[in-house]
Nucleic acid binder design. Structure first.
Lengths: 159, 159
DNA sequence: GCGTAGAATGAGACTGAGTCTCATTACAAC
DNA sequence: GTTGTAATGAGACTCAGTCTCATTCTACGC
């Protein structure tokens, strides 16, 4: 499996492409791509891991909390940002997969860190088959899926 | 795949067995299996789906909120209860898998409902292989995993 | 059975993530 | 430039979840 933890930068291919793409997504729901929103997207794109609100507040302190929440919510509506629920009590945010690439998460139950990993094609085939089955049997219409592996990250079980 | 949504009752085999097992788990960490804790376990066992705190408060109103939280936290420490983070903002609780059986979740992004499904052995084999790989490559020590499929449940996309 | 130490509980204050409101500012169209 | 509308900042507000502390229960020795 190819892991991408901490090393992939979704905007590597072309940084301006990302922002143009986000702008298109926003325009689709009649929203502007303002400076505050750009700052949030830029941060999520370069961080390479899902960020909590406190991460975001720390990184871009000139964007007030209430605005950051609103930007994230608007970007979520535009399909640009995805909210993920970690095992601790607060939410984290990352760029949506169609702007980056499909991946899963390792959740450290000690420090709360979230690490991205890209799945093998073998794995994804099995998941897709499973999801198809569910759609039929449960009448459940899947839009996406996420595998969360819970455990202890390298730096935590060292200590 | 065998789905078990809404139909499996973990304690079907023997209800008293479950409570004895929980008692053992609690004693292991020097905790008593009191009436309040029994009420919570009983509720989780018979509900057949992960419950939020408001579900629990509604079902057993004579157990105060602060006690319910404490019971859940103690039961979690004993390895009897697992806390799962749904996609909405609040946590849900279910009996740990070694008291029931290994399963995954369908999360309805419209109504917040969480549906349990049991994985195929084929799927679990692939996941285990993937998790082993991670352990080696990332130095991540996995303790458990969960596949969340996000989408719309039958009753939501009917309307 | 009785007394006592420690565990469990209930009530309610407290914390902080996330939401809402509203006055102000920026922008787009004419 | 003017005007209507969208976006923003500040801060009040809500409510899930935690903490504290006085009270009640339980196990155990006598």
């Amino acid at each position: 499996m190819n892991t991408a933890a901490g090393t992939h930068h979704p905007a590597d291919a072309s940084h301006s492409d990302l922002h143009e793409l986000v702008e298109v997504h926003l325009h689709r729901i009649d929203q502007r791509y303002t400076a505050g929103r750009q700052a949030v997207v830029e941060l999520l794109a370069t961080s390479g891991r899902p960020l909590s609100i406190s991460d975001i507040a720390r990184a871009i302190p000139d964007v007030p909390r209430s605005s950051a929440y609103r930007h994230l919510s608007d970007l979520q509506d535009a399909g640009v940002v995805r909210r993920i629920a970690a095992n601790d009590e607060f939410a984290r945010f990352e760029l949506a997969e169609d702007l980056t690439h499909h991946h899963h998460h390792l959740l450290c139950s000690l420090c709360g860190r979230v690490i991205d990993v890209t799945p093998t094609s073998d794995f994804e085939r099995t998941v897709s088959a499973m999801v198809d089955e569910l759609t039929r049997q449960q009448g459940f219409r899947a839009t996406s899926h996420a595998l969360d592996v819970i455990g202890h990250c390298a730096s935590c079980h060292e200590n």
